[in-house]
Write a protein that binds this DNA or RNA. Structure first.
Length: 298
DNA sequence: CAGTGTCAAGGTGGA
DNA sequence: TCCACCTTGACACTG
C-alpha cells in the first residue's frame, strides 16, 4: 500500500502544473513553463519521498496545450533527459505514478472530433509516462464517458473504440467509476468485455452506487489487478461536510480513514487521497496507516 | 495589489 | 433549443 495526493503540493512553493492562456502562447513561454514544471515535479517527488508519499498523480498541465494544434514544439525530444531523470527517481524508490486527463477526454463520444481530440490527449499522457520509462503499473485514468441517450450503445461504442486504440495507449488506460453515470458494476461489465482495469473511487461509489459492499468490490479489484499492472489503484475521498453532493472534504477525517483501512483489511492497494489540503491530509493518512502491515516503508 | 472574471476542450438535465 | 450547472485552480485583467 502506497499513499499519495494528486498534482498539487500546497506547501512546497511551486507548481508542476503551471500554465497560461492560449492567447499568450509562444514558443518561448511554452519551453519556459515546461522547464519550470519539470523542475517543480522533481522537488515534489523528493518531498514526497521524504514524507512517505510513494504514490503521485502528475498534473495534466505539466506540458500545457500538448495536444492542441497550436503546439508544434517537439517537447518530447527537447525534454527527454529531464523526463528520464524523473522516471529513474520514481523507479529507484518504487513509487507509483498516475495521470488523470480531464472531463473532455471521451472515448465513447459519438462526435468524431471529440474522439479524435481525446486520442491526441491520451497520446500526450502516454508520452509523458513513456518518456519517464515507467511500466504498465503507471496508469492513465478516465471516466467511461457520456450516455448520449442510450447507455448500452454508449458502452458498446466505448468497447469498440477501446479495441481500436494503439497498444501504447490501451496498455495504460483505466476506467474509474464516476459520481453520476457509470457505476462500479458498469465498469466491471466493460472490464469483462475488454480487460481494462478499474480504479475504484469510494466517494463516487457512495453517491452513484451499484450496491456492492466494500469487500466485494475489493475482492473483484484484486482479481483484476495482477501481474505487471500492479496492485489496485484507488481514489479515496470524503464528502465535504454539509456540502453539495460530490464536493471533496477540506481535510481528512482521521476516524473515517481509519475505518476504511479496517474495512479493507486483507486487501493490498494504493490510495490516491482526493482531499483538498493535499499533502497535509496525506501526512495524516500515512501516520494512521503507519502500523498497518500493508503500508510500504521506504 | 487585491479582487474577480474567465479559461481549449463536453455532457446532462431542466426550462 | 437554450442555458445553468458540474469542479478546480490559477491566470491575468481591472480598478
Amino acid at each position: 500500500m502506497r499513499i499519495g495526493y494528486p498534482c498539487i503540493n500546497r506547501s512546497i512553493g511551486c507548481s508542476a502544473g503551471r500554465t497560461f492562456r492560449l492567447a499568450n502562447y509562444s514558443f518561448q513561454r511554452l519551453i519556459d513553463t515546461i522547464d519550470l514544471n519539470l523542475g517543480c515535479l522533481d522537488e515534489i517527488l523528493h518531498d514526497n519521498l521524504a514524507n512517505g508519499f510513494l504514490f503521485h498523480r502528475i498534473s495534466s498541465d505539466i506540458v500545457p496545450f500538448a495536444s492542441h494544434p497550436v503546439c508544434t514544439v517537439d517537447w518530447q525530444s527537447r525534454f527527454a533527459d529531464a523526463f528520464a531523470g524523473l522516471g529513474e527517481f520514481v523507479r529507484t524508490h518504487k513509487m507509483r505514478i498516475s495521470m488523470h486527463p480531464d472531463q473532455f477526454t471521451l472515448i465513447n463520444s459519438p462526435n468524431r472530433d471529440v474522439f479524435e481530440r481525446s486520442l491526441r490527449e491520451l497520446a500526450y499522457h502516454s508520452d509523458v509516462l513513456d518518456l519517464m520509462g515507467l511500466g504498465a503499473d503507471a496508469r492513465i485514468q478516465i471516466h467511461v464517458g457520456g450516455i448520449y441517450g442510450d447507455k448500452p450503445a454508449a458502452i458498446d461504442r466505448f468497447v469498440r473504440r477501446y479495441k481500436g486504440l494503439d497498444e501504447r495507449i490501451s496498455r495504460r488506460l483505466t476506467i474509474e467509476n464516476d459520481d453520476r453515470l457509470y457505476t462500479f458494476a458498469d465498469c466491471v461489465r466493460i472490464h469483462e468485455r475488454v480487460g481494462i482495469p478499474i480504479i475504484f473511487d469510494n466517494l463516487h461509489h457512495g453517491i452513484n452506487c451499484s450496491g456492492e459492499p466494500l469487500l466485494e468490490v475489493f475482492a473483484k479489484l484484486s482479481q483484476i489487478w495482477t501481474g505487471r499492472i500492479g496492485i489496485p489503484m484507488t481514489d479515496y475521498s470524503e464528502p465535504l461536510p454539509g456540502g453539495r453532493s460530490g464536493r471533496h472534504a477540506e481535510q481528512i477525517d482521521t476516524g473515517a480513514f481509519h475505518r476504511y483501512l479496517s474495512d479493507t483489511a486483507g486487501y493490498d492497494f494504493d490510495i490516491m487521497l482526493e482531499i483538498k489540503d493535499k499533502e497535509k491530509s496525506a501526512a495524516a493518512a500515512v501516520q494512521i496507516a503507519a502500523e498497518d502491515p500493508r503500508l510500504v516503508i521506504m
